[in-house]
């Protein structure tokens, strides 16, 4: 055995941790090698020095200090106590965890549903086809478990979206119940008919209101005309402090069939005045205020008297 290897094993040799064969080899080597003998001696002395070190005693009050620390709540307990300090009844963390998870799942589910609905509506707007619109509408009616929040969201968007034709055609001037989402209270809506005036080309000495009508109707396609009417109606509704809730399109693609509005009752005369600029109401708006409500919700069916060529 070489000195280098022996020196490496001297620590284990001192502690009797070598197997019998190695121990014998090292013992034999040390007997012959003065260098390794000195190495072993110096190591033993340094170990003895460590063994002889005086034990440092704990302070006299060590037990009391430990007891004091034990009586203090642990850090985690202190944090929990601080969190729930305002409550007399402490809520177990598990319950809080479960409640938080349930809330999180519900909010994620709602967000996903809303996003889906917006996507569907957007695709309908983009495609603008009657078929897709019908599909969407019928799916909405059938869906019994549709969250009310999603529906209200789509309603909010109604000002800017086009929704397809409903299956039944409303009779003019008759009361009709609008298809509403499940969970939403069914509401009977009063309907009135607005017979749109469309002055012919080249007509002279027009009245002021006819001029307004002409501005939106001269030399354009029926769809464009319908869109302009809608814009004008939006302006009017806004002017009288109302809200456009729903836009219904008719059989002809892109042509507005009716609008549903919400108007402050006090502004009905102004609305009637403004509507008379672009058409003729078949029934006076004053008939809508029978119930003395502050806000009136009703449907205006549009009738195109002279379609623009």
């Amino acid at each position: 055995m070489k000195c280098r290897e022996v020196k490496k094993r001297l620590s284990e040799y001192m502690d009797g941790m070598l197997d019998a064969r190695r121990e014998k080899l090292i013992r034999e080597h040390i007997a012959k090698c003065r260098n390794c003998t000195e190495e072993l001696r110096s190591l033993q002395v340094s170990v003895n020095i460590l063994n002889s070190l005086q034990e440092i005693k704990a302070p006299e009050d060590f037990l009391e200090k430990v007891q004091q620390r034990i009586e203090q709540p642990s850090i985690s307990n202190r944090i929990i106590q601080k969190i729930f300090l305002p409550f007399r009844i402490k809520i177990p963390l598990e319950v809080v965890g479960v409640a938080a998870t349930v809330l999180l799942i519900i909010s994620i589910f709602n967000a996903t549903e809303s996003r889906k609905e917006i996507k569907e509506v957007t695709s309908i707007i983009r495609q603008g086809t009657q078929k897709e619109s019908d599909k969407f509408l019928s799916r909405k009616k059938k869906s019994a478990s549709f969250p009310a929040r999603s529906v209200s969201l789509s309603r909010e968007k109604a000002e800017d979206i086009s929704v397809g034709k409903e299956p039944s055609t409303p009779a003019s001037g008759a009361k009709k119940t609008l298809a509403s989402a499940p969970g939403e209270k069914k509401m009977a809506l009063t309907e009135i008919v607005l017979l749109l005036k469309i002055p012919g080309k080249g007509e002279e000495s027009l009245k002021a209101e006819e001029k307004a009508c002409r501005e939106i109707s001269t030399g354009i396609s029926p769809v464009e005309y319908s869109n302009r009417v809608l814009l004008k109606l939006k302006e009017i509704v806004k002017l009288v402090g109302g809200k456009l809730l729903f836009v219904e399109y008719g059989k002809e693609p892109g042509r507005v069939k009716s609008i549903t509005v919400q108007i402050p009752a006090k502004n009905l005369p102004l609305l009637a005045d403004k509507l008379s600029e672009i058409g003729k109401l078949q029934r006076p708006l004053s008939s809508l205020t029978e119930k003395e409500e502050k806000i009136i919700k009703f449907k205006i069916n549009l009738q195109y008297k002279n379609p623009v060529q």
Binding site: I56, P59, F62, K65, V66
Partner: peptide
């Protein structure tokens, strides 16, 4: 207590820190 304290003192080389660690260990 003395064995644990001595162990902590020899590892840390500081009386106050050893006191703190030894108490902490027992807690």
């Amino acid at each position: 207590k003395d064995r644990v304290f001595n162990l902590c003192f020899r590892i840390l080389g500081d009386y106050e820190e050893a006191d703190d660690c030894a108490q902490d260990a027992f807690v």
